[in-house]
Design a binder for these strands. Structure first.
Lengths: 234, 234
DNA sequence: TCAAGCTAAATTGTCGACAACCGACAATCG
DNA sequence: CGATTGTCGGTTGTCGACAATTTAGCTTGA
């Protein structure tokens, strides 16, 4: 029964420590338990996890290159603070990448291969919006866009997108209500599907210009308001 | 002569070790002393520099996030191998970023502020092309493009560009003659300047589409040939 | 009261050491 | 002779320790 088709055992991930710590820290950040500007002292984290500082440092460097932490020489790591302008820049870069990725998907005729999965993801989003699972919905939302970028076939697009996505996710986690009408946002993704199916590269670009443009305005707008409030209380 | 323009002494960076090691390693890679696929054992490097493994590891992680090294769990670091397709993806991403950056420079009226510096850099390139200083010319070439991206005002554009640029530089260092006519390549940058001065965003985009498109074809083409040769000898 | 200066505690940068692990070669068995 | 198993050198992952630096609290003086 087991010649070679089914390897019976998975490779049993054993990079364990630094990877696991990185994941814990990531979760703490995107879930908001660690807030922007918070200090992340490696010695403290190491004590809490009951490990030495080396793997914590490793994990922190990982999150630094992911853009979730920043490090100041001789002063350690801090949760990255991000201002509205920076977030806006982030969305602009995302737009550049995603519109060309979508165009590429159309150009290389890869739409058919992913259309079912995309539809299913929209359904998921709609379901989550009805249950007010905002955080989860945003996760699937990013997965939807990631799938498009992934099937563009350009590995650099994907790598850049992944980096952006984690930061965007962390930012949106800081905003209480990201969208007024989550259901509408979810269903708007059908417009992207339509554009992809049209087979016209420019139409695909236009669809993403619009879609991401709306998200950009909404999220950055909320963020600006949030900044203004904080400036007031401070 | 030196009130504040030229600070005579640098702040004597005290992150020293890992930073300096990272720079050394980077130079070794972009200059081709370390070739793609080469092993970079932290213990070996540490011995050579006469330091412990910690700062070497730190530096290696830095270069990893810069895309110059890759790490395999429990096996250490290797100089990143890059195939022609990957390089092509790299140029495509670069194009996405740079064309929008240029459009932004025009849109926000920042051309005047950098035009002199851009011209000077072209002159430098021309000079270097006449002295067959190819590696140096490519450095200034990237500086030219970096200046445009920098003055776009989008910090994410710049960060992404810097990451790309180091990889592109490393790749071009592997090719003996990158361009047949370096002087022509240098002077072609005037076309970009003209487009920027036109004040038309689309013209700026088109200029970079063309310019980077040419570089892309040339470099990727050479790289493909290089790959074919290696496949033959292997 | 508050600012500046000083001391002590905490934290980072670096180090050397040890165990776990990988890859290659030698030994063993069929 | 081929394949599996055991062994060995070298490397990485992790640790605890120490010195340099930063931070926080306290004292001092105006």
């Amino acid at each position: 029964m087991s010649s070679k088709s089914e390897p019976l055992f998975q490779p049993l991930a054993r990079d364990a420590l630094s990877q696991r710590i990185a994941k814990m820290l990531t979760d703490a950040i995107v879930s908001g338990k660690l807030k922007p500007g918070d200090r992340v002292a490696e010695s403290v984290i190491a004590r809490e996890f009951g490990v030495s500082r080396a793997p914590v440092r490793e994990a922190a460097r990982l999150l630094e290159s992911a853009g979730l932490l920043v490090s100041h020489a001789n002063r350690g790591f801090f949760v990255r603070t991000i201002d509205a302008e920076d977030l806006d820049s982030l969305y602009e870069l995302r737009l550049c990448i995603e519109r060309e990725a979508a165009a590429r998907v159309v150009r290389e005729g890869r739409v058919a291969g992913i259309i079912d999965q995309l539809r299913a993801q929209i359904e998921d989003m709609v379901g989550m919006s009805e249950e007010n699972q905002l955080i989860l919905q945003i996760g699937v939302d990013l997965q939807f866009h990631r799938l498009i970028v992934e099937s563009s076939g350009n590995r650099r697009f994907l790598a850049a997108f992944d980096k952006l996505a984690s930061e965007i996710q962390a930012c949106t986690a800081m905003i209480e209500t990201v969208f007024d009408e989550p259901g509408l946002v979810a269903r708007n993704h059908y417009l992207i599907i339509d554009a992809l199916l049209s087979g016209d590269q420019d139409e695909a670009r236009a669809a993403l210009d619009y879609h991401i443009g709306v998200a950009r305005e909404t999220v950055v707008g909320r963020f600006r308001k949030l900044e203004a409030e904080e400036a007031g209380t401070r």
